[in-house]
């Protein structure tokens, strides 16, 4: 579904991401964990085509996507739940969802998608007319998830979904991501909260200082003491 080969991304002289390679199979949920400022968001923004790539390749569903515009990426069935949610804050909840299905293919199924999403998040149905910027953080995250689902993505990029949310909401968000994965969507999850992310992922990569330092199944990573110590804070 997604293959990244020797990707380099950088601002100016400094390389924010160097020589990163990732694979994500169809229907897989893969997470990228790592400390703050490890380059996780840079990586996901490069995949989402919001940042230019310096070198390397991004291949999505067998198609070269390295130089596409965000709009062309949308044609390939990729949707993003960005860090900090980045809703259309002056628009209503339902208008945010409408933009989610702006693409012609998704728009054709608007009614079914809306019904499914309001079923999944009843609170969004109650607040469909409310301006998105006035919702609570947790509800805004639901809108961000729902907006991406309206696009009926094949590949979903999720960046730091737990950021700034209360623990009870975080639990709910991860359950939702897991449920979306069960419905067959391939997911690349970027998350600082390694414990939570590994609990729902099939495979994981560890990113630090812009480089990939480890990969494996959650169990394998937990068994590696140096990673355990550095990223889970569980000691040895």
């Amino acid at each position: 579904m997604l293959r990244i080969e020797n990707l380099h991304v950088g601002y100016g002289e400094a390389a924010a991401i160097s020589d990163v390679s990732i694979t994500l199979g169809k229907g897989e949920l893969v997470c990228i964990i790592g400390p703050n400022s490890a380059g996780k968001t840079t990586l996901v923004n490069a995949i989402a085509r919001l940042l230019p790539v310096r070198a390397g390749k991004i291949i999505i569903d067998g198609q070269e996507a390295t130089r596409l515009t965000p709009q062309q990426l949308c044609d390939l069935g990729v949707a993003i739940i960005p860090e900090g949610r980045r809703l259309f804050t002056s628009m209503s909840v339902e208008e945010n969802l409408d933009i989610g299905c702006y693409h012609a293919k998704a728009r054709a199924n608007r009614m079914q998608s809306l019904a499914r999403i309001y079923d999944m998040f009843p609170v969004l149905s109650e607040r469909r007319r409310q301006i998105a910027g006035t919702l609570s953080g947790g509800q805004q995250q639901m809108v961000a998830i729902a907006r991406a689902l309206m696009a009926q993505p094949k590949l979903l990029l999720i960046d730091e979904p737990s950021l700034g949310l209360a623990p009870v909401i975080i639990k709910q968000v991860f359950e939702t991501i897991s449920a979306i994965h069960t419905q067959g969507v391939s997911i690349l999850l970027i998350e600082q909260n390694a414990t939570k992310a590994l609990a729902i992922s099939q495979r994981a990569y560890v990113l630090d200082c812009g480089a990939m330092i480890a990969e494996g199944t959650p169990a394998e990573l937990r068994d590696r003491s140096e990673i355990n110590a550095a990223y889970f804070g569980h000691g040895h």
């Binding site: 949308c74 980045r86 809703l87 002056s90 208008e95 409408d98 702006y102 728009r107």
Partner: peptide, 23 residues
């Protein structure tokens, strides 16, 4: 209209709007 909503979305957040196919 779809165009009107897309226009407002682009004003709020052009990059994310483009990610959802807004021209």
């Amino acid at each position: 209209t779809w165009l009107g909503k897309a226009l407002r979305a682009g004003l709020d957040n052009p990059q994310i709007a483009a990610s959802f196919g807004v021209p």
